[in-house]
Amino acid sequence: MHLQDAGNFRELGLGSDEAPSIVEARGKIPEAERSQIGRYLATGTVFAVSSGTLSDWFTGEKNIAPHHSQTDGVWHWRADLPYYVLRYGVALPDAFLQRMRDLNWKCPVLSQRELLAFVERF
């Protein structure tokens, strides 16, 4: 199974020139859904950790999130994605949003076995 990326905005250095723009994605998530999405993203299983912290691309504010990646077993994203959804309402892929809705906004917790299988696929 191919893992799907969310929040790989080209300005953050995560994708090619064809990747979505964080500037264009801003304000696309309605206020009413932001907290549910942010909570889902924030509770994803951590699978990769780097040293340091991430900064806000728009303002330069430092230490908005640790520098690690999270997953729900199907999608993966950087730890700053909940921040960008909550603060700026950045768009996410429709299929990812539908998965969150289907799971009633509760991010699956991966077992150690599932996490190891995930890391091997990544």
Score class of each variant (00 low, 15 high):
14 L>K: 08
17 D>M: 04
77 W>Y: 12
74 V>I: 11
98 Q>H: 05
25 A>R: 01
43 T>Y: 08
19 A>E: 01
89 G>P: 13
31 E>S: 09
34 R>L: 05
70 Q>V: 06
27 G>S: 04
6 A>D: 01
20 P>L: 03
35 S>L: 10
21 S>G: 12
99 R>G: 01
1 M>E: 10
62 K>I: 04
17 D>A: 11
74 V>Y: 09
63 N>Q: 10
81 L>H: 09
72 D>E: 02
91 A>N: 08
100 M>I: 14
69 S>P: 00
68 H>Y: 10
27 G>Y: 04
16 S>T: 15
91 A>Q: 05
38 G>L: 07
65 A>N: 09
77 W>E: 01
5 D>R: 13
62 K>F: 00
92 L>H: 06
91 A>L: 01
52 G>P: 15
68 H>S: 07
43 T>Q: 15
100 M>L: 14
67 H>T: 09
83 Y>S: 00
96 F>S: 03
32 A>F: 02
9 F>Q: 00
1 M>S: 12
21 S>I: 03
2 H>I: 06
87 R>S: 06
94 D>C: 01
54 L>G: 03
46 V>P: 15
99 R>A: 08
29 I>E: 00
11 E>A: 04
35 S>N: 13
29 I>W: 04
90 V>I: 13
91 A>M: 01
17 D>T: 07
73 G>C: 12
40 Y>M: 10
60 G>A: 06
17 D>S: 11
43 T>K: 13
76 H>C: 08
74 V>E: 13
35 S>M: 11
21 S>V: 05
73 G>M: 08
31 E>N: 07
55 S>Q: 14
31 E>F: 09
45 T>V: 09
44 G>D: 07
84 Y>R: 02
79 A>G: 06
53 T>P: 05
6 A>Q: 11
99 R>K: 15
35 S>A: 14
85 V>N: 09
96 F>H: 11
53 T>H: 11
87 R>K: 15
44 G>C: 10
68 H>G: 02
21 S>H: 07
60 G>V: 05
38 G>I: 07
11 E>D: 03
46 V>M: 09
43 T>E: 15
88 Y>A: 00
33 E>L: 15
49 V>G: 00
99 R>Y: 09
31 E>G: 05
47 F>Y: 15
86 L>Y: 00
90 V>E: 00
34 R>K: 12
95 A>E: 14
30 P>S: 13
48 A>I: 03
8 N>F: 15
6 A>L: 08
8 N>P: 04
92 L>I: 10
58 F>N: 01
90 V>T: 01
38 G>T: 13
40 Y>C: 11
73 G>D: 05
29 I>T: 04
48 A>W: 08
63 N>S: 13
60 G>W: 02
92 L>R: 06
70 Q>G: 01
16 S>Q: 02
94 D>A: 13
34 R>I: 04
4 Q>H: 12
83 Y>P: 14
80 D>L: 07
36 Q>G: 13
41 L>F: 12
31 E>W: 08
93 P>H: 03
33 E>D: 15
96 F>K: 06
62 K>W: 00
